[in-house]
Amino acid sequence: MTADLATRSTVPAKPDEPPLRPTAQRLGPRGIFSQVLLTLVLLLFLLPFIWMLSNSVKPGDEVFSSGLLGSEVRLGNYGEALAYLPFGRFMLNGLFVSISGTIVVCVTSVLAAYAFSRLRFRGRGAIFMVYLATLMVPHEVTVVPLFILMQQLGWVNSYAALIFPWAFSAFGTFLLRQFFLSIPQELEEAAVIDGASKLRILVQVIVPIARPAIAVLAVFTFINYWNSYLWPLIIINSQEKATIPLGLSYFLSQNGNEWHLLMAGCAIAMAPTVLMVVLLQKHLIRGIAISGIGGR
């Protein structure tokens, strides 16, 4: 799974150029020491996750009295957590909101990025500047007016309120426009001569080339929706519509002492994001290199 990352960093840029820095092939005694030490640092770093998993399968009264392993491994805690609060429901809500939001973001960004990178029209520069300017505005500035807007639309406590306010940010448009600009126009010329419509050129020529950039946008958009906390806290007021982070905070406020169940809930909440990162690591790494997306 990690082969991509490993080769990417060790293979020199040009194949005929000998590797000048000592590569990972030969590790001297110092290299082995460094490797072992780094692994220990990594294990310490991973300890919170390990502790979470270990406590998620302990009997509840052993959370503070036992080490890594309790007197038994209770996988049933997961079932109990799912029954205690509707975690299954939170997961489905989160998946629905994140997937819908990601689709809206990708489709609207692709269309707008095409207009900004390939079409000539009056005011293009000015409109694009307005998009760019809003990139600097922190989300917190818009939550109050958005809350009022949601009240007026009757969207308080709805999926629409979770999806739409964040589905049109300038970021996706900006990212994809930059990528589209790097695609040579000659590639589209054959299609233009064939008389293909602009929409067809976009869908059949540009989108396939831009797939890596779109994938990056999709992954980060999904993760942002999935992890979003402040906005759901403001706009959602029932378990029926809550997403995972909100569900966890409900759990904390209702029964914060059931640590074993809470840890099972955390593990459930983390699983989809970890899975995504492992499966799509190639896109993520490249995306960070080309765009500086995400950023905390």
């Binding site: 990690t2 082969a3 991509d4 990352l5 490993a6 080769t7 990417r8 960093s9 780094l38 990594l42 770093f45 991973l46 919170p48 996750f49 993760i223 999935w226 992890n227 906390y229 995972i244 982070p245 909100l246 966890l248 905070s249 809930g265 955390c266 909440a269 983390m270 994001t273 970890v274 995504m276 990162v277 492992v278 690591q281 993520l284 790494i285 995400g294 905390r296």
Partner: peptide, 17 residues
Amino acid sequence: GLYRLLFFIPTVTPMVA
């Protein structure tokens, strides 16, 4: 790649968790 990936994981898991 493996080290980079593992150190990266908490940035994508939900902050609340």
